[in-house]
Amino acid sequence: MTIDQIKTLVAVVHHGSMRKAAKALGKSQPAVSATIHRLESSLGCALIVKGSRPVKLSSFGSRFLKRAREFDDVLGLTETFSKQNGMKKLCVCFDYGIALDEVCKVSLQIIRDNPLRSLDLFRVDTETIHQLLIKKRCDLALTQPMKFLPPHLETQDVGEREFVEIQSVVAPENQPRSMYVHNSHGQPLWDFEVMNPSNAISFNRPSDMLEAVSRFHGKGWLPKGEVQAALNCGEVRLTEQPRQSCSFHIVWQRSLAGESKLIKRIICLM
């Protein structure tokens, strides 16, 4: 999630179409469409209902837009000043185990605290985050604990996140197909069973798996916060499996000495 992507979404909704937003932003329509697609990919959820004219937001898109409009003025300042004096980009990664509501809440805090910096906020799997931190390609991350912490990194516990097993509401005669979110090696990120069933399907993002579970007969483990809306709408139900918890840490480069206040605020938010 980048500043340009958020500004583009606000413009598309304001003008009611990709074409009008593109004209207002001085971009091509394909460029605007690609920007919105990248924003949706980074969030793991659709923001705009496909084919809607004028543009219609999804339920998640409506919730996200409220946050986006809150810091629209701040984004204008950020865009103006981040292009000057070669200001450093602040790169922040969120583990897929961090629910979308938490991601939005923390992102808003980061943007408010860094009005004059270029920001890059995105979600990715645990293993990739660890590699980015070790190679110093990521400044700060909310992720599962690292087995080995290099000396150039600091870390602090931000508590546990609860995971639940969900299942589609309508159950056909056949056994439900197990579904997982996988890492870069295709291994399930949240697999609490000893053996993987042979008919399991693996997905890149939690939202992809949630959509598949809702539309087809399947079941799988997801962060509780990620599925709360689907539970409330009756799209999925909980299985009888006990809930599981995973620990999460905030990890940052030691070079972020000037960001100590921001890090403390993020810890409080979590």
Rank of each mutant, 00 (worst) to 15 (best):
Val124Gly: 06
Leu108Gly: 08
Pro242Trp: 01
Phe203Lys: 07
Phe216Gln: 12
Ser33Gly: 10
Met87Ser: 14
Ala46Glu: 14
Gln156Arg: 15
Gln131Pro: 12
Ser33Gln: 05
Phe216Met: 05
Cys233Val: 08
Leu132Gly: 09
Leu256Val: 00
Phe64Ser: 00
Arg177Ser: 11
Lys7Trp: 07
Phe248Ala: 08
Ala257Asp: 10
Lys56Val: 11
Asp73Leu: 06
Asp113Glu: 08
Pro172Thr: 05
Leu222Phe: 00
Ala200Asp: 09
Phe94Ile: 04
Cys138His: 03
Lys261Gly: 02
Cys233Thr: 10
Ser255Trp: 04
Met209Ala: 03
Ser168Leu: 02
Gly61Cys: 01
Val170Gly: 08
Gly258Trp: 01
Arg38Val: 02
Asp95His: 04
Asn196Ile: 15
Arg161Glu: 15
Leu77Val: 14
Gly86Leu: 15
Cys268Glu: 15
Ser42Pro: 04
Gly234Leu: 01
Gly234Asp: 00
Lys219Gln: 13
Pro151Gln: 15
Leu256Gly: 04
Gly258Thr: 12
Ile250Tyr: 01
Ser107Glu: 10
Pro115Trp: 01
Lys50Gln: 07
Val170Lys: 13
Glu193Trp: 08
Ser207Asp: 11
Thr155Ser: 14
Ile3Cys: 09
Ala99Asp: 09
Lys50Tyr: 09
Glu102Arg: 14
Arg215Leu: 11
Ser184Gln: 13
Ala11Asn: 08
Phe216Glu: 14
Leu100Asp: 08
Ser17Glu: 07
Met87Tyr: 11
Ser202Asp: 13
Leu256Asn: 09
Pro188Leu: 05
Asp191Thr: 06
His217Val: 04
Asn196His: 15
Val170Leu: 14
Ile48Arg: 02
Asn85Met: 15
Leu90Phe: 10
Arg205Tyr: 11
Glu102Tyr: 13
Pro197Ser: 08
Gln187Phe: 13
Ser59Cys: 04
Ile166Gly: 01
Glu235Lys: 10
Cys104Met: 15
Ile166Trp: 00
Glu70Ile: 10
Lys20Thr: 11
Ala171Gln: 13
Glu226Phe: 00
Leu77Met: 15
Thr155Asp: 10
Tyr96Cys: 05
Gln228Glu: 13
Met270Phe: 02
Arg19Met: 07
Val13Phe: 00
Lys136Ile: 12
Ile201Gln: 04
Pro150Asn: 01
His37Leu: 11
Met195Leu: 06
Pro197Asp: 12
Ala22Cys: 00
Pro30Thr: 06
Gly51Val: 05
Ile129Glu: 01
Thr80Gly: 11
Thr143Asp: 08
Ser62Cys: 13
Ile250Met: 02
Lys105Ser: 12
Leu75Phe: 10
Phe81His: 12
Gly220Asn: 05
Asp139Arg: 08
Gln253Thr: 03
Lys23Tyr: 09
Val169Phe: 08
Arg205Gln: 13
Arg117Ser: 13
Gln144Cys: 03
